[in-house]
Design a protein around this nucleic acid. Sequence first.
DNA 1: AAGCCTGTGTCAATCGATTAACATGTTTGA
DNA 2: TCAAACATGTTAATCGATTGACACAGGCTT
Lengths: 326, 326
Amino acid sequence: MATLKDVAREAGLSVGTVSRVLNNRGYISEETRNCVQEAMKRLHYEPNEMARALSKKHSTMIGVILPSISHPYFAKVLSCLERAAHARNYELLLFCSQGKSAREEEYVRVCCSNRVAGLVLCSGGVKTGKLRNLGFPVVTFERFLNDADAGVECDNYEGGALAARELIGAGCRRLLCISGEGEVSMPADARKVGFLDVCASHTDVEVQVVLCSPEHLEDLNYYPELRAFLDASPAPDGIFAGSDVIGLQTMAELSRRGLRVPQDVKIVGYDDVNLAQMTNPQLTTIHQPVREMAEECISIIVKAANNESYPARTMFHVTLEKRGTT
Amino acid sequence: MATLKDVAREAGLSVGTVSRVLNNRGYISEETRNCVQEAMKRLHYEPNEMARALSKKHSTMIGVILPSISHPYFAKVLSCLERAAHARNYELLLFCSQGKSAREEEYVRVCCSNRVAGLVLCSGGVKTGKLRNLGFPVVTFERFLNDADAGVECDNYEGGALAARELIGAGCRRLLCISGEGEVSMPADARKVGFLDVCASHTDVEVQVVLCSPEHLEDLNYYPELRAFLDASPAPDGIFAGSDVIGLQTMAELSRRGLRVPQDVKIVGYDDVNLAQMTNPQLTTIHQPVREMAEECISIIVKAANNESYPARTMFHVTLEKRGTT
DNA sequence: AAGCCTGTGTCAATCGATTAACATGTTTGA
DNA sequence: TCAAACATGTTAATCGATTGACACAGGCTT
């Protein structure tokens, strides 16, 4: 592997000058710039980012901690983060906590060791006090922690409310809200509360709530809770699912029981992930502007790296994507 | 941030000794080891991995290049890679090529710059010659490149054959094979060939083939090709889909056209991702041992880092997961 | 008593960049 | 024409570890 020194020798220049070209500092003539760049090509020079990171006290990597990767929602989040990061020449260092706070804390330490430029935290339960003075900004995605440096969220309360209005507006009166218990910790809560608040304002509407184990973020199997509920209670005529995954499984289970969607039961999902469009009927769902949220996260970290100020809390709107299940 | 030197001072020892503890080299007494570890705790010391990587000529990061992240198959692959890597104390540096070879090559260079311990390449078209002498091993996932140092695959030919036997055995005679064109470049091809070979051995079986644009790996929308085919031809009675995503969309589209699965048309998917179980009926599919394959990839890179020898080519079996669509 | 093993220290080089201080020219333009 | 501005070089310190050479002391063998 060629080094800066090799390039300097090859180009007949000093390391100082070559470094100037590399970092766009000070005065350089076009001629010299070209000369250096050609020397780099000839030697197949690739700057050693480790050495660079050591000098400047941080790398160009951004840590990302997710509770799960194969869950379609987080896969979408990750995909958007990747795109946003690479557009600004940052790389992603990926961690999956499986929702375990011990793992989260370990990964925060690993990020520390790697002197990341920042950390996007999509996972729930890092203990208070563990996120301060890390030497890089921590941005939470879809949640807010006092302990973090910034939070990027969307209006989950409004999402729940939209879902309730949609179902009630379509004539549903016996509603079910089924979601992961603390699925994404706080956000799911807000969804539920928004949903229930709107329901409460309609005196002729009944609501039941089913909370599913957070473990299902990993195994993605909500059928047990779903079946238990449907076995024990008369079928609702409107269901708000806390995620599209839950929504799809609900559709499948209703179909097995001979219930038709949307004629007998209407469903609203949450997240608007790609599988919401892979069934017949397609799933009506609450859309989060995940791409914009991801870009905001990365943007915040880049701003922090440049010593610019950034918003401590950003909230995006959600919208209802009406499809075939309502 | 505390440094090694700080720890040494705090513990009243020399940097040499502290480094010995950190790297388990030479002679250290239990007493000293504890003393050092306590000093580290007191100072909240986190070793600077950048400095370490600079000294030892490589980091503990493993690069991963995928064509897409939100595609459920690659999300699953990534999830397994993450787990396997962290089990061995490696981190994942993530890149998404979107199937563009220019991006792939750029990301290979970035991996170079970051002196990764190895690279897992799940994406298709790096030009010959670009993968040699990088200073770290390149392992291809689900494909074989002469240029790479190792390949981990599964028997896609057999997968296609299994699908054909399943459909034909269930009585289907007018078959359709619909898959991404070079969906994952070579692998999809082998699937198709395996499928067609078995079909060809049955004189009473007709087969048609629809190839979809590789762009759909990103947008996951195979409906246009699907509709075009179903509009133009009489419906087949058995369909082999090159991925579960295609399989699900096929089911949805058939359902829209009033065709019943599995009564009128039977379907076999590929990949066995979680969404294969989120519909009614659940999708019969070809299962790849993705977890084992991912572990093998990581294992190869770890072996290479320890100067142990490793297999140049590993192939796993696939199995048919019979569910409700056949 | 000689030699080995254990445990620690000192010192200095090295990994491959960045960066500041300072020197030395050559252009320019007001 | 004289001071800026431009262009490059030299030198050396620094980032935070790793590592090898070498020294020195006790404690154990044999």
